[in-house]
Computed example of a mutant assay.
Amino acid sequence: MKDALLLIDLHAGFFTSETLKLARKNLVEASNKLIAAARDNGVPVFLITTEHSRDRSTWTLNMLDDDQGYLFHNDPSAELVEGLDTKDVTRVEKTRDSAWFGTDLDLRIRNLDVDRVVVAGVSTHGCIAQTVRDAYARNIRTAIASDAIADDRESYQDIMLEQLVDDRQTQLHAVDEVIQMWASDH
């Protein structure tokens, strides 16, 4: 099985809630561990980021309803979380929850003959869940690195993970298990 690593929305702006502030250090460490192992084992790494335009053309419905955008180009909130190792990663920019919607991620994954993506980052109930579901719709297997994800609504995270696993749309693996799988495939 050929894997790729998708790191979702590791922006400074997402780490403002108390829950995510507390999770930030461990999440960055786990993400960096995955990135290093991916490099060592020839696994492509995609940094999936969100960036919106000030002209409202990329805003989601809730942003339009609230008349409040965020994650604008060159804003501090759109910067990557401090300490994340981004050397030699491929960046894919999105404007919706799913990393697949309106991006060229599908083309990139297919060109690399990837048949499973390992997903990490934030927020589990939103962007991670939608990315996993859309991968499933494309017949691409997924695994969520269970100790490399976070959500400011922890109860939502637990419910979402249970649903995704019960629906057989993903598997959960700890970071060390993912690394072991990559090493044994290499």
Rank of each mutant, 00 (worst) to 15 (best):
D75N: 10
K94A: 10
V118I: 15
R24C: 02
A150W: 08
N62I: 05
A78I: 01
R141C: 01
V114A: 01
L107E: 05
L34M: 05
S98L: 06
D134V: 00
L105K: 06
L105T: 00
H125D: 13
N26Q: 14
A129V: 02
D40R: 08
D104K: 08
A137D: 15
A78T: 12
I128G: 04
N111C: 00
P76V: 04
M63N: 07
A38R: 01
R116E: 01
I149P: 14
A143K: 03
L64S: 09
G69H: 10
T90E: 13
R141A: 11
I48D: 07
D152T: 00
A30K: 07
A145Y: 11
F72K: 08
N74K: 11
I128Q: 02
T58S: 15
N62C: 02
G102E: 04
R108K: 15
D113A: 02
R153V: 13
D104Q: 10
L84Y: 08
L61G: 09
F46K: 03
W59M: 05
D113T: 02
L80M: 08
R24E: 12
T49Q: 15
D55R: 09
D40H: 05
A37I: 02
S123V: 12
I35A: 09
T49L: 13
A137Y: 07
R141K: 05
L64M: 14
R138W: 10
A99P: 01
L27D: 03
A129G: 09
N41L: 01
E29N: 10
R138N: 08
E93G: 00
K33D: 10
K87T: 13
R153I: 11
C127F: 05
Q130M: 10
K33W: 01
A137E: 14
R54T: 09
N62H: 09
A150I: 15
A38T: 01
T95N: 12
R24S: 07
V92K: 02
V118E: 02
V28D: 05
R153S: 11
D65P: 00
E79Y: 05
M63W: 06
T95K: 08
E51M: 14
G42Q: 03
E29C: 02
G126N: 13
A148K: 13
D152S: 12
R56E: 12
N41C: 09
D134A: 04
S98P: 10
R153A: 13
P76E: 11
A137I: 06
A99V: 01
K25I: 05
D75K: 08
K94Y: 05
G83R: 11
A36K: 14
I109C: 03
K25A: 11
D67Y: 03
H52P: 06
L84I: 14
L107C: 00
